[in-house]
């Protein structure tokens, strides 16, 4: 599943939209393994702020990324209503902590717009484009840039 560019103009793909604070984001539904409720995570030392720690996903150790914190927003205060979207990023499986899942929608390529120049470099590197849906603005999350790479962690 490539996400390096805007979705092609021809394909109709489905996306899962979710809320982080007051903003809406989405990921390709084909990357989503499952959606589950929040469970307390075990913090990892020496990791970036947005890595909330790891949880047990049926025997596998799953790192949790707080999307709000990743996008420079105030940290998510996890509540029982918070949601973890488990996504597959190349060979890794990662959980994204978000406030709520809001929608599943099918896109037509024509409605995608490039990320406006206003966004900071940090945010721009993680947003693959924006989509207008019923007057709402939904940003496509580039999963590959969400997780810290192994080098970043080791450094």
């Amino acid at each position: 599943m490539t996400e390096s560019s805007l979705p092609g103009t021809n394909d109709n793909r489905e996306f899962v939209a979710f809320r982080v604070g007051s903003q809406e984001f989405c990921v390709d539904i084909m990357c989503v393994r499952e959606i589950r409720g929040w469970t307390a995570a075990t913090p990892l030392p020496h990791t970036p702020d947005y890595v909330r720690g790891v949880i047990n996903l049926r025997g596998a150790v799953l790192p949790i990324v707080d999307l709000a914190s990743r996008f420079g927003l105030p940290e998510t205060e996890p509540t029982p209503r918070s949601v973890i979207i488990v996504v597959q990023i190349s060979k890794q499986v990662v959980g994204l902590l978000v406030d709520a899942v809001s929608d599943i929608f099918t896109t037509t390529g024509a409605s995608w717009q490039p990320t406006p120049e206003i966004a900071s470099d940090n945010v721009k590197s993680m947003v693959g484009g924006i989509y207008a849906l019923d007057g709402r603005m939904i940003s496509l999350v580039l999963l590959n840039s969400i997780i810290p790479t192994a080098e970043k962690v080791a450094a």
């Binding site: 075990t42 990892l44 790891v54 596998a60 150790v61 790479t149 192994a150």
Partner: peptide, 18 residues
């Protein structure tokens, strides 16, 4: 349980367990 499968190497931590 390996931490490296889904995340990466963390200094001071060898692995995880459940």
């Amino acid at each position: 349980k390996s931490l490296e499968t889904n995340y990466g190497n963390v200094s001071g931590i060898a692995a995880a367990t459940i």
